[in-house]
């Protein structure tokens, strides 16, 4: 299932945030969206997921999602958004509860999602007992348990410390390799974009417009190999060159705001 964005434009109280975003995302592709603060990255994700109504423009799906997908668009949140009163397994189960599924399949899906995210031994733990990284794994498992056509990740690693972030990036690549969904990955971290995405959409300072789309021609399976390092470093530098000046202006602007 492909995803097609046509002229997405959005205003908050008359303030133009996104201006005419056209984008085609192909099935199974990982697209990162980066840009200076306030460029409307998260807004764009909200529009694609149906949580925000765009001021103008449409998001269309082309083709059908795969047969076992219960929910074509699921989110992974920056702040995890776990229910603190539910165990890890019950948090993951939440995404399935309103779908009529045989008990056995429900259990199997939960088990698979926990296994995929390395949570197999933590099914009964409460969120408060887990580290930030483990909590985000729960968020990821919850999003994957419905086998989404499109996974919408809203700065999923921003709330984590640097070491945990490194670990999770490796895990995400492993998951990318085993699971076949399309991913839209919003981040302000250039390293994440360069290492995790197939293509990086660089948005301009507000109002957000597509400045450039950078492709990374290293298969997901080889991203961790030594040969990939120079390519990724080059992409990273390129991205920085693209947004550096605007980031500085945006920073000042935010301070004035």
């Amino acid at each position: 299932m492909d995803l097609r964005l046509d002229g997405i434009t959005h205003r908050y109280d008359g303030l133009l945030v996104l201006d005419g975003i056209d984008l085609l995302i192909r099935d199974g592709e990982t697209v990162a969206i980066i840009g200076p603060s306030g460029c409307g990255k998260s807004t764009l994700l909200g529009i694609v997921g149906g949580l925000l109504r765009p001021s103008a423009g449409t998001v269309r799906t082309i083709g059908k999602p795969r047969a076992d997908s219960l929910n074509p668009f699921t989110y992974v949140f920056q702040d995890f958004a776990l229910l603190p009163w539910r165990s890890v397994a019950a948090n993951v189960a939440l995404a399935l509860e309103h779908h009529p599924l045989p008990r056995a399949e429900r259990q199997a899906r939960i088990k698979a999602a926990l296994g995929l995210t390395g949570l197999g031994d933590f099914a009964d733990a409460l969120p408060r007992q887990l580290s930030g990284g483990m909590r985000q794994r729960v968020g990821l498992a919850r999003a994957l348990v419905v086998r989404p056509a499109v996974l919408l990740l809203d700065e999923p690693l921003s709330a984590l410390d640097a070491q945990t972030r490194e670990l999770l990036m490796e895990d995400l690549l492993a998951i990318w390799a085993r699971e076949r969904s399309t991913r839209l990955y919003v981040t302000h971290n250039l390293d994440e974009a360069a290492r995790l995405a197939d293509r990086v959409v660089v948005l301009s300072r507000r109002p957000g417009r597509i400045r450039e789309i950078v492709s990374i021609d290293v298969p997901v399976a080889e991203r961790l190999s030594a040969s990939a390092l120079p390519v990724i470093a080059a992409v990273r530098d390129r991205l920085w060159a693209l947004i550096r000046d605007e980031a500085r202006v945006a920073e000042r602007e935010v301070q004035h705001a």
Partner: peptide
């Protein structure tokens, strides 16, 4: 937290749920 409610909506939970 509002984000928990948004999370519920994003997973397609019906209002009563």
């Amino acid at each position: 937290p509002r984000n928990l409610i948004r999370m519920g909506q994003s997973f397609g939970l019906p209002a009563h749920a």
